[in-house]
């Protein structure tokens, strides 16, 4: 088995492994209105937790 073939095999395994990990974790399948970044009504934490914005 030459180096080229090893690289191809390793690369393909890596690509498949990555895809499987993303699928297993359900990445990008969060509902848009439930994702953390667009959390509705989040008051956040810290000293400025009253929700007021200075």
């Amino acid at each position: 088995m030459n180096l080229f073939r090893i690289i191809i095999l390793a690369g393909s395994t890596f690509a498949f492994g990555g895809a499987s990990y993303l699928s297993y974790s359900g990445v990008w399948r969060e509902s848009r209105d439930a994702a953390q970044s667009v959390r509705v009504g989040s008051s956040g934490g810290g000293y400025n937790s009253s929700g007021r914005i200075k």
Partner: peptide, 15 residues
Amino acid sequence: NITTSLWTFLAMGFF
């Protein structure tokens, strides 16, 4: 532990 076939399906398309 909800999974998706999106990524493996894309991988299939790519390969």
